[in-house]
Every structure is written in structure tokens, then in C-alpha cells.
């Protein structure tokens, strides 16, 4: 599904990714771990097309398409979703209006008719239930005045609405209490199917107790330095990242 080859990227002239190789297949859950500043969030930003980053080398193919040649919105239409570490508050834009625009633009991209108002509201209701998102939140402006937990649930709600093929969850566990973490993780697990895949970016093992990865990667200084099974996450939890640095 996703093939990253020797990806280099920089921001304001500073190289952050220094040759990332990664392959994700349908049905898999990958975890990317690593210390602060290793390039985890940069990788998600580059894959989704954030304009602040410049790709300086390498390639990314997504279901056979050259991902890096697509606009951010077309990457989304092709099925790429990023759950933001810090979801943006957008005062004055209602969740309903925002989601209706997003869903219908995706449908148009795929040559489908826009959803009727009734069908759209029905879809909103169904998907809200997955993350127990209050109707009142759905009626408000995007993320405005939401608590940390509500924002993360709102991300997973949008993921449910858009049914992506590949979801990247960037530090989805940060700022969550244990109940919210459970709800978010259950939401992600509910949405897991044989034909989609998930990349979980996290600092800690904690989230991986709820979302079981098939493969764990360690990103360090802009490169993936180690790949293993779920046991690698446990090892990192126990030993920290320092032992990797020693191998440098």
C-alpha cells in the first residue's frame, strides 16, 4: 500500500529526514517510535503534504500512485488520513459544514454524487457513536473550546467519516487520560479492516497496549534504525532509547 524509499526532507534548509525506508501493507498496523526530534512528526507532515516541508530526495508510492506529486487534498481523497498531534481550532467553521464539505469533495473526486442532507446527518450520527462524541460537540466550531480528549476523539470521528485506507495517528495518546485513551483506541480498532492500514506514531508503549502493532520501527536522527515485532516496543519501554544511541 505504502512504499517509502530513501526519503529525505527538510524544513527551512534543515534536513530532518535523512533516508527513510518503510513499507506498509493492507491489514497491517505499524508503530513508529523514537525520541523527541527524531523526525516522527516530520514524516507524517511530509507524507500528507504540509507546505512548510521540502522533499529533497526519495520517493513515496501510495497504492501505485506517486504520493509526493499530489496536493494535500488529493492525498486525502486517495485515502490518506492524519490524526494531528495538535488538532487545529477553527472558530466560525462548524463541524457539520466542515465535514459535509470534506465528504462531498471526496465523493466528487471519485465521481460520486454528493450525499443528501438526510444521508449525511445519518452518517454523522453513526460515526459519532464510534468514539462517543457528543452531538453538542459536532454542532460547534471545529475543535473550538474542545478539551484535549475531545479533540482526539474528534480526530478519530473524522477518520471514521472519511474511511481512509491509511491512517497515521500522530501522538494520539498525548494529552489523553486513561478513559479517553481507551475510547480512542477502541475507535481505531473498530475501524480496522483487512483493506486498510494504520501507522501509530508514539513516544510510549502505553497506546500500544490498546492498539496492537504488527511491526514496530524506531526512527532516530531521521532514519529508521531498527525494525521488529511488538516485543521491540516493550524493549524500548524498558531500556529507553539510549541503547540505540550507543549503537550509533
Amino acid at each position: 500500500m505504502l512504499k517509502i524509499k530513501d526519503l529525505h526532507a527538510s524544513i527551512e534548509g534543515k534536513e530532518i529526514l535523512k533516508g527513510v525506508d518503510l513499507e506498509v501493507n493492507a491489514g497491517e498496523v505499524h508503530a513508529i517510535m523514537g525520541p523527541n526530534g527524531s523526525g516522527k512528526s516530520t514524516l507524517s507532515a511530509v507524507l500528507t503534504g504540509h507546505p512548510a516541508y521540502t522533499v529533497t530526495g526519495g520517493s513515496v508510492s501510495f497504492n501505485g500512485k506517486d504520493l509526493l506529486a499530489l496536493s494535500p487534498e488529493d492525498r486525502a481523497h486517495e485515502g490518506l488520513f492524519l490524526s494531528f498531534q495538535y488538532p487545529v481550532e477553527i472558530p466560525g467553521v462548524s463541524m457539520v459544514n466542515f465535514m459535509r464539505t470534506a465528504v462531498n469533495e471526496k465523493r466528487r473526486y471519485h465521481g460520486e454524487e454528493p450525499l443528501s442532507a438526510a444521508d449525511f446527518l445519518k452518517l454523522m450520527r453513526e460515526k459519532r457513536a464510534i468514539v462517543q462524541l457528543d452531538n453538542k460537540l459536532a454542532a460547534r466550531s471545529v475543535n473550538e473550546g474542545f478539551s484535549g480528549g475531545e479533540k482526539k476523539r474528534n480526530e478519530i470521528f473524522q477518520m471514521a467519516m472519511l474511511e481512509p485506507k491509511l491512517s497515521i495517528l500522530d501522538e494520539t495518546d498525548s494529552g489523553l487520560d486513561i478513559d479517553a485513551l481507551r475510547i480512542v483506541a477502541e475507535g481505531v480498532n473498530t475501524l480496522k479492516r483487512a483493506d486498510n492500514a494504520t501507522i501509530v506514531i508514539t513516544h510510549y508503549q502505553r497506546l500500544l497496549d490498546y492498539i496492537k502493532p504488527d511491526v514496530v520501527h524506531v526512527l532516530y536522527k531521521g532514519r529508521i534504525v531498527k525494525t521488529g515485532g511488538p516485543e521491540l516496543a516493550l524493549e524500548l519501554e524498558e531500556k529507553g532509547y539510549d541503547w540505540l544511541k550507543d549503537n550509533d
Binding site: 500528507t48 503534504g49 504540509h50 507546505p51 496536493s71 494535500p72 487534498e73 492525498r75 486525502a76 481523497h77 488520513f81 492524519l82 494531528f84 488538532p87 487545529v88 477553527i90 467553521v93 466542515f98 465535514m99 464539505t101 470534506a102 465528504v103 469533495e105 471526496k106 473526486y109 473524522q158 472519511l162
Partner: peptide, 9 residues
Amino acid sequence: FYMQQRGVS
């Protein structure tokens, strides 16, 4: 960018 990531042009 947040909106673009959701597929809004």
C-alpha cells in the same frame, strides 16, 4: 492545511 488534509480543497 488541516482542512486540506481532510480533503477540502
